[in-house]
Amino acid sequence: MSSYTAHFKVWRGDADGGGLQDFQVEVNDGEVVLDIIHRLQATQASDLAVRWNCKAGKCGSCSAEVNGHPRLMCMTRMSVFRRDETVTVTPMRTFPVIRDLVTDVSFNYTKAREVPAFVPPKGVAAGEYRMAQQDVERSQEFRKCIECFLCQNTCHVVRDHEENKEAFAGPRFLMRIAELDMHPLDAAEETGLNRAASAQEDHGLGYCNITKCCTDVCPENIHITDNALIPLKERAVDRKYDPLVWLGSKIRRRGQ
């Protein structure tokens, strides 16, 4: 096993400001950026604030920007950097800093509450749900989301436009609407809620101009833009202009 000393720059500070701090730190074979942050905590900066949980890419807690790229620190291998390369770790830019690498992500929880919940079908008892695998798979792709909020962080609609946060749910929660819209048994329609139209009118779907930045940073490789946002846009537009087109497209999809 070989180890070496790496040069790290880690942003430290709080809501009042801060800056990059330099560290020389040991790196061993097979380690990821989060291991190095932990080593800094244990040996050089015991109060360095960072969120993490599973360390296996399953919980979405350790989101940050590594050399400017939005990443999960637990899934960023040190082997992707040259040994003489400076590794710079900064907090997600779109959300207000609390301390060091920890940001205030409450924006996302606010948006989550604004998306109307799953509406169970009337007259179908628990245990009586029947759905085909191919019908659940479309929504299942979106339910792989680990809520790391890297897509929310990256989306240029809000990344440098604080003023858009009010009106725009962000890719994660527009995808949540798509997920419910594609759920085989969601009965929102019967309650008078058209999810696709609501995405457009209430959750800012129109702000998205499909640059696919969200898809690029998704650690779960969910095709957010192609499979969630674009179909949602199509349905929103179709419904707006022609109910027959919408019906036709729904039947065609079923047949696939």
Binding site: F118, P120, A126, G127, M131, A132, Q133, V136, Q140
Partner: peptide, 12 residues
């Protein structure tokens, strides 16, 4: 089964 009524999507 109750989870399904809350929106869970298990493999089929």
């Amino acid at each position: 089964w109750e989870l399904e009524t809350w929106g869970a999507l298990f493999d089929r």
